[in-house]
Amino acid sequence: MLVVDDEVNLRFAIERGLRRSGHHADSASTVRQAIERLRSKPYDTVVTDLRMPGGDGLELIQWLGSYSPSTKILVVSAYITPEIRAEYQHQASIGMLEKPVELAKLIALVEELGPRRGFYGNSIEVELFDYVQMVALSGRDKLVKIVTPIHTGHIWFEHGDIVHAEFESHSGEMAFYKLLAVGRGTFTEVFYTDPPKRTIMGSATGLLMEAARQMDEGTLGQDPAPEQAPVDDEASFADLNDDEDEVIVDDDEVAAEAEPPVDPNDPFDLRAPPPPPPPPPEPQNSATGLLDDPETRELMLGQFFEFEGVDGVAIISSTGKVLAESMGGNSSLVTLAGFYMRGAARIARSLGYNVFDGVIARSETGQQLVMVGMGATSAVLSIESGRNPEQVRDEIMGLD
């Protein structure tokens, strides 16, 4: 927590109260000092006054909204006007409290706002998942230190691929998945040194796709189920026959006492096996199931080639999985389309939308892509060089 107030007694009282409640707390007396602290250290929540010498608390709120939007804000002031309430009271990350302050209520509001979620770099607010994508595309060598509330981890990149990861007692892919599963912390690039060993052999793309799959299934970072030991039939048979008292059975006596054979057509013979269960219902059509059919797949891809300026199409799930594509064999572009698609879907969800429409992206090489929401799936279109992607997007969406 960072407490920003020019009233010394109140600032120290809030800071001391937060610490006694189990929170880490720092303080600043001006907006400028607060921004300096925020640039050097991540905070979950900023408790700020509005009227202070040398700067307005609204300036601090605007700065946080631009440079650290995941940081929660609690405004504590005697000058909360109806205009300020109208502008900020509906923001989930901002709380308001009138002075004079009741300390217990302030602490309750801070805890109600809760900690900010996600991994963020100190110099720029970017999700760790997205940062890994950027390093993978850049092809750089990097060593990244990740600090979480649980433990500190490290990830080594060589030419953009993750070659080693460490977190707690884990290394390799499991360490990477468990780091992501914590879901909260900060990361920084540190001086690069060679990894102590190479524990990850696949590409960063494959690692991210598997992490996305585990996220969707709710299994990210979970330890794999232990494999059952194989049954040794010979040992089991030996155990069954290793009794102290040997029993000798007369086959003739068993045959004489045997029951008549089971008649499966006799409804009164309770020994008859139950009828087989009915076949399971046919699965409902899903986007993945529909695209298993070659004709349907060609039809869905082909509808986008009718628009001038489209030279490649990929149909992709919200997790970035490519369900069907016709990108001319450009596998790197298909992978890039998957990353763009997943990022656009995350942005849409953060804004409260389940789908998105008409998102335009551009790669480092200048390749332009248009993403069009299709419900459960989305189409990512490669636009011909020299074409205006906005015009292509509007034509596809039927906009004037």
Rank of each mutant, 00 (worst) to 15 (best):
P261W: 07
V231M: 14
D223P: 00
D194P: 04
T205G: 02
M209N: 11
D252P: 00
D239Q: 13
K178D: 00
P276F: 08
M174W: 01
Y192M: 05
M201A: 15
A272V: 07
S236G: 00
D269H: 10
V262P: 05
A211P: 04
V190S: 05
D243Y: 03
T219D: 04
F268M: 06
N241V: 09
Q214A: 13
R198V: 15
M209Y: 08
P260I: 06
E168V: 01
A181V: 02
L180H: 07
A229I: 09
P260M: 07
M174L: 15
T199Y: 03
D239P: 00
P281C: 09
L270F: 13
L270M: 11
D245E: 15
L208W: 00
I248A: 11
E257P: 00
T188H: 12
T188N: 15
Q222W: 04
A229W: 04
K197W: 01
A255W: 07
E210K: 14
V262S: 06
Y177D: 01
A212D: 05
P195V: 08
N241K: 09
A256F: 08
A255H: 07
A238N: 15
N241S: 13
D223Y: 00
A272N: 10
G185F: 09
P279M: 02
P273D: 15
E210D: 11
T186A: 12
V247K: 10
A204L: 01
D216E: 14
E282W: 02
D263E: 08
A256I: 03
L179P: 01
P274R: 14
P196C: 04
I248E: 14
Q222H: 12
D243A: 09
P196E: 07
N285I: 14
D250Y: 04
P273C: 04
E173Q: 06
P264V: 08
P261A: 13
A175V: 03
P275W: 05
